[in-house]
């Protein structure tokens, strides 16, 4: 009896704290999500009522060469870009953590690229850097290398977007910094007394203690990068060109939904992506038991 009361009390407190989110998820998230799940089984042009067509959208999708392109391009972007971005962000965060004068100032400067978000200025800038008459090319010319139209060649366009992603490394950096703040200084001092080298200090003390944050960044950046849209949209002008080389999954989805008026197909694409990301995340969560350390 007492146990039951205790359990009820626990549930009651838990759900009380959860209630804002629960209301939000049941109304603002669940309804639109379930609606889109239903729409993925229909032919829906947005202006006239949806017509149920079963699994047709999914069947069409698996035969759509452009869809395969978009999945390939996005996977490349995620699996190459995210690790590079995180390594860069962690390196800078460690670098700017302590022991350098003018730290606050440097940190603020390093965050500047992320302030721009998906501003149109970025599109202009990237053309200025990686275009045929861009800065990168004039640099290469002075060094005597061959130049290339980086931004508009099918074999390099995606890499310019990966560079953009790495360049906007501010968010993971801030999260790393916040994580580093939670590492008690005593531990560093203790390892210093032990005479540990800097690398040992990092790999034995710092890294294990910030694994929850590393894990968070990894999961979030992967989920985010799979849905990357803005950078390709502004830089390719929404086309995903040249030759679909920057056709991100969500960019194609947007074209299908908003330009071709095939919201049913777009919804099917979205739910496939959800499953895809969910699998990737699940794998990460399972492996995380081996390398993420919590204090609880």
């Amino acid at each position: 009896m007492n146990k039951l009361k205790q359990a009820w009390r626990n549930n009651w407190v838990g759900y009380l704290f959860l209630s804002p989110w629960l209301i939000g998820v049941l109304t603002l998230s669940a309804i639109p999500m379930l609606a889109s799940l239903y729409l993925s089984f229909t032919s829906y042009d947005m202006f006239t009522p949806p017509k149920f067509i079963g699994l047709d959208n999914y069947a069409t999708m698996f035969q759509d060469a452009k869809w395969r392109d978009s999945l390939r391009v996005t996977s490349m972007y995620v699996f190459l870009g995210v690790p590079l971005q995180l390594i860069f962000a962690l390196a800078i965060a460690l670098f700017l953590n302590r022991g350098i004068s003018g730290l606050k100032f440097y940190r603020a400067i390093y965050y500047v690229p992320s302030l721009f978000g998906g501003s149109v200025a970025i599109a202009l800038l990237w053309r200025q850097l990686f275009g045929s008459k861009g800065l990168v090319n004039s640099f290469l010319t002075t060094l005597g290398f061959e130049t290339k139209n980086w931004i508009a060649s099918p074999d390099t366009a995606l890499y310019t977007l990966i560079v953009l992603m790495i360049w906007q490394f501010g968010s993971p950096m801030v999260i790393f910094l916040a994580g580093l703040k939670q590492v008690p200084i005593e531990l560093y001092e203790a390892s210093k007394i032990d005479g540990a080298s800097k690398w040992k200090q990092f790999s034995r003390v710092t890294l294990p203690l910030i694994t929850p944050v590393v894990f968070f960044n990894l999961v979030m950046q992967i989920i985010g990068a799979f849905q990357a849209f803005t950078s390709a949209y502004i830089i390719s002008g929404g086309s995903g060109g040249p030759l679909n080389s920057t056709l991100f999954y969500t960019l194609y989805l947007y074209q299908k939904g908003f330009t071709h008026f095939q919201m049913g197909y777009a919804s099917a694409m979205a739910w496939f992506l959800l499953l895809f990301i969910a699998c990737a995340t699940a794998i990460l969560f399972i492996t995380s038991k081996k390398w993420v350390y919590y204090q609880e």
Partner: peptide, 15 residues
């Protein structure tokens, strides 16, 4: 050429 054409395809009028 193709690459240059693509580069400027969506350029704003001023550019």
């Amino acid at each position: 050429d193709a690459a240059t054409g693509t580069e400027y395809e969506n350029a704003p009028l001023e550019q």
